[in-house]
Nucleic acid binder design. Structure first.
Lengths: 349, 349
DNA sequence: GTGAAAGCGCTAACAT
DNA sequence: ATGTTAGCGCTTTCAC
């Protein structure tokens, strides 16, 4: 029975006051001078009638909807989307905003994505979050510029929009560091073949870490495959069977948890036990995989929740005039990728 | 530059006509009689100014927002949510609606969920989808009744609201049937310990199928554990090590894919090869697991996408007066759970 | 064939 | 300390 058709006017009548007064007390307008008793009368009447404000009317009048648009690429295919959405939803809710979500296939044309943004614009969202499901460079619909916006998990081709991305370099360093700290000196990298920032940055960090540890980073074995379980299996098989025994890596850094899952299988087939004979670290911290493999996979977590929340916080700050997004647009903000220790790393034999 | 501040009025001025006319042509109002040239003038002007309707104002006037609220339990923790959302989003988009999504922790109190619904109501959504992340009985906030609503993946305690749920019985039968068809006569069931409909219905279907096949359904081995990988491992270990060799099952039906994953490990430890020594079928079709295990897991797919889409379709039908939801409220609608064949089932040795 | 004007539910400037 | 009133941008009835 909460919001049938009762409006502010009905409350006014019931309380025997004007709509202004009702509006003032219900919105706790600071400069309003209203007696304690009137306030109570109004509140009681509103309560009794089950009054709830019509946010549409409010929005039309104030030019503020309190809605944030979230255009999300590939909501379904990756569990990452959920964490971004959750981070955004909780941050939004905490500040009195709600989320309008539009899914857009990763393959969607620029025009179709522009239409999605347009739909959000017509609903007068106060700002837009544009989230991609893996860290990459995107071409953005130009109507995104009509309203404060922030990019989540990508940077724009042509730059100039505030963005938040994971710290690929730091994450990769943490992963390789864990292996090095355990005493490994022969570590291999199973990389992705896609040309995305993560591929390049993780490789670079891998080599750099080894070199900084006094090892030959440039010579360290790297095998690339599609970033799926099967690819990880094949790459691991290759990397673990080459050259003579003394040169085979005792530790593997894998581009992601799925590839690590493939590496587990390769190890099993080769009679290598994890972590006794082979240490493995992944990337992504996909719960379903990392926590459920046996032994549990040590990996690096992608800050999806945090990126969603960060983006929302700053978007709202910008909307409320507390911050100037253009000041942050020069460089993407980088959020840490913490190491999640489980049981796949041990000292080499 | 799409929707700055240009309204219908600006278009009217630019085209040299009244706002009525603009509204008529832009909305293609059927009874409007407007000359071809006027129409063109209006369209050109609108285009030139980059006019986009203000949906808030439209909604205020027409009492229709074209927005659907989706309250989703546990958006992040399960990948299932994504598929429901996707199904809903695509169905909604196809009919010109958009989704407002609110996440609510599964543990949230009734009041807090009521507040979530309230937020949606204040924004005057035309209808509400209430989605839970696994099939169960929920206590619904009573303000849900203020607007057409449909329940996704649960049935309401106390009934009387249209709901759509998976066909647990049919899915379980398909799973067990696959095992039976392969020739197995000793099949075990690894069940969940939670008291949810799926637990009971799958068990019942399991026994029924065996009995109908002329086997002793009541005597078939069943082990229950928490429905995670570890639980599946333990239950499988027990079920595969009991009694004498000739009584050990040659096939396992697992409550879900995670438990099946545990069963894989148990089999490996016992030196049982899948599917040669042991056939396994799961439930859920969690891509990340089922498709990535080795060998690929034969399982039963939960129709999350379909439930999201079905619910949305019917919700919109109800909103548009094409259907009466109360007619469907008596019994939940049941959507099929198709068997997904991969490589974990073979004839017994 | 086209336009004037009322009103959706609310806020806020301006009375009083 | 409280009330009147003009819009926010649109649709729609009714008039011309």
């Amino acid at each position: 029975m909460s919001n049938k058709n009762i409006g502010i006017k009905d409350v006014a009548v019931a309380a025997g006051v004007s709509v202004t007064t009702v509006s003032h007390v219900l919105n706790e307008v600071s400069y309003a001078r209203i007696s304690r008793e009137t306030r109570d009368k109004v509140r009681t009447a509103a309560e009794a009638l089950g009054y709830g404000p019509n946010r549409l009317a409010q929005a039309l009048r104030t030019q503020r909807t309190g809605m944030l648009g979230l255009v999300s690429e590939e909501i379904a295919t990756t569990p990452h989307a959920g964490r971004i959405i959750l981070g955004a939803d909780e941050a939004a809710k905490a500040r009195g905003y709600n989320l309008m979500i539009i899914n857009t296939p990763g393959s969607a044309s620029l025009e179709s994505r522009q239409a999605d943004v347009q739909a959000l614009l017509e609903r007068r969202v106060d700002g837009i979050l544009y989230a991609t499901m893996y860290h990459r460079n995107v071409e953005l619909p130009d109507n995104l510029g009509n309203v404060p916006s922030v990019l989540v998990d990508s940077v724009a081709i042509g730059g100039n929009i505030t963005a938040v991305v994971p710290d690929e370099d730091g994450g990769a360093r943490a992963a390789v560091g864990a292996l090095l700290d355990a005493g490994h000196t022969r570590v291999g990298f199973i990389n992705n073949t896609d040309d995305v920032p993560a591929t390049r940055q993780r490789l670079q960090a891998f080599r750099a870490m080894l070199t900084e540890a006094g090892l030959d980073g440039e010579a360290a074995p790297v095998e690339s495959e599609v970033s799926e379980v099967q690819g990880g299996y094949e790459a691991a098989k290759r990397i673990l069977s080459r050259g003579d025994r003394a040169e085979i890596p005792t530790a593997l850094f894998c581009y992601n948890d799925r590839m690590a899952m493939g590496a587990y299988r390769a190890a099993a087939e080769l009679g290598l036990s994890i972590p006794a004979d082979l240490s493995v670290v992944g990337f992504d911290d996909q719960e379903l995989i990392a926590a459920n493999l046996y032994p549990g996979l040590t990996t690096v977590a992608l800050p999806h929740y945090e990126m969603g929340a960060w983006a929302t916080e700053h978007l709202i700050d910008a909307i409320e005039g507390k911050e100037d997004l253009s000041l942050m647009a020069l460089h993407p903000t980088i959020l840490g990728c913490p190491l999640v220790r489980r049981d796949s790393v041990a000292a080499p034999r």
